[in-house]
């Protein structure tokens, strides 16, 4: 506590305490431990976050590992220009946006519907079992999930291939080599893996709805659907809005892991997204690390704009915002 020197008087006018202004020495005597604890943390952020942030200057250089970041020659906006001028620009932008758009259209409402339905279950044991099972896939690694996708879509014995051919009459084929199937495979497996986990936040929000509202609605003769719509859904609307903003802020962000496991050169056309393109150009085919950094930087900038924009819209429209 910082107390001004002199005699402090309480409300009734009597002297409270006589205290001198704390010196730097006495402050450090108490707080040095906290600074000591923060030293490794700050070192971590400087080394693994802020030095890489400084490192983005190679987007304007022709980086060569032997010269290092500082001594590599400047090239101006060349990498950005060649990226914007290339056919890849529209392709990866379109793929990133479309995969995210489909994930949003299908993947966003499903956890909400799931949470609403779960909320209607009266048998507690059943409810808890369903819930527990639903988020199990979230903890399975991407590699294993994609491995299962490969097996289930195998043209000869995959169970999904068989299901598609027997129920929908689709000829068995190597689905993972079909450009037209990539986004569906990506989004569907994503929903399978994340539905239950994404629903938790809504389930948490549901628990704070006042039960009296339901009783009152029942007395007024409202049916189950009516209550789900007017009480439950309305009750979790603020959470939905926040999650929606967060999701919009991610519209140009797709994790690299799953895409590089799922795609192959035959499906680059529909499956190659910004992050996978950055990885390939940075580390795989004819690496050009400066170019890859420029693309990554462009992606970061757009992401930031989306997030700020979505937050601004939300504050205007609903008075709910992240900051």
């Amino acid at each position: 506590m910082y107390v001004k020197p002199g005699i402090l008087k309480g409300n009734d006018g009597t002297p409270l305490l006589l205290q001198r202004k704390p010196t730097l020495r006495s402050y450090l005597a108490k707080y040095w431990i906290l600074y000591a604890l923060l030293v490794p943390v700050i070192a971590y952020f400087v080394i693994f976050h802020y030095i890489p942030m400084y490192g983005v200057i190679i987007a304007w250089k022709r980086y060569s590992p032997s010269l290092g970041i500082i001594d590599s020659p400047w090239v101006g906006w060349r990498h950005f220009e060649s990226f914007f001028g290339s056919i890849y620009f529209w392709r990866i932008l379109r793929n990133t946006l479309l995969i995210n758009f489909y994930s949003l259209v299908f993947g966003f409402p499903i956890p909400i519907i799931f949470a609403l339905m779960l909320n209607e279950l009266r048998n507690v044991a059943f409810k808890r079992t369903v819930q527990t099972i639903s988020y199990l896939p979230h903890f399975i690694s991407t590699v294993v999930v994609v491995g299962m996708v490969f097996d289930f879509l195998n043209p000869n014995h995959g169970i999904i291939t068989m299901l598609l051919s027997s129920v929908f009459g689709l000829q068995p084929r190597v689905w993972l080599n079909q450009p037209g199937a990539f986004r569906t495979i990506y989004v569907a497996s994503e929903i399978w893996q994340r539905m239950g986990w994404s629903a938790i936040i809504y389930i948490a929000a549901l628990s704070s709805i006042d039960p009296e509202l339901y009783e009152a609605a029942t007395i007024d003769g409202a049916g189950t659907l009516r209550k789900m719509w007017s009480i439950t859904l309305v009750g979790i609307l603020p959470t939905i809005v926040i999650m929606f903003i967060l999701r919009i802020g991610q519209l140009l962000n797709i994790g690299v892991e799953k895409v590089i496991l799922l795609y192959n050169p035959l499906t680059y056309e529909t499956g190659d997204v910004i992050s996978s393109f950055v990885y390939r150009r940075g580390f795989q085919e004819r690496p050009n690390q400066s170019f890859a950094t420029a693309v990554d930087l462009f992606n970061q900038g757009i992401n930031l704009m989306f997030l700020v924009g979505a937050n601004f819209m939300s504050r205007r429209l609903t008075e709910t915002s992240l900051w």
Binding site: L38, M53, G55, P65, V278, Q289
Partner: peptide, 28 residues
């Protein structure tokens, strides 16, 4: 009462919104 706490907080939270990216991280 820790002086500088809010600055350190900001330094940390900022990394949620902006990263150097995989290439500069690899270089480090």
């Amino acid at each position: 009462g820790l002086k500088g706490a809010s600055i350190i907080m900001r330094v940390m939270v900022f990394t949620m919104f902006f990263r150097g990216g995989i290439v500069p991280l690899y270089i480090v």
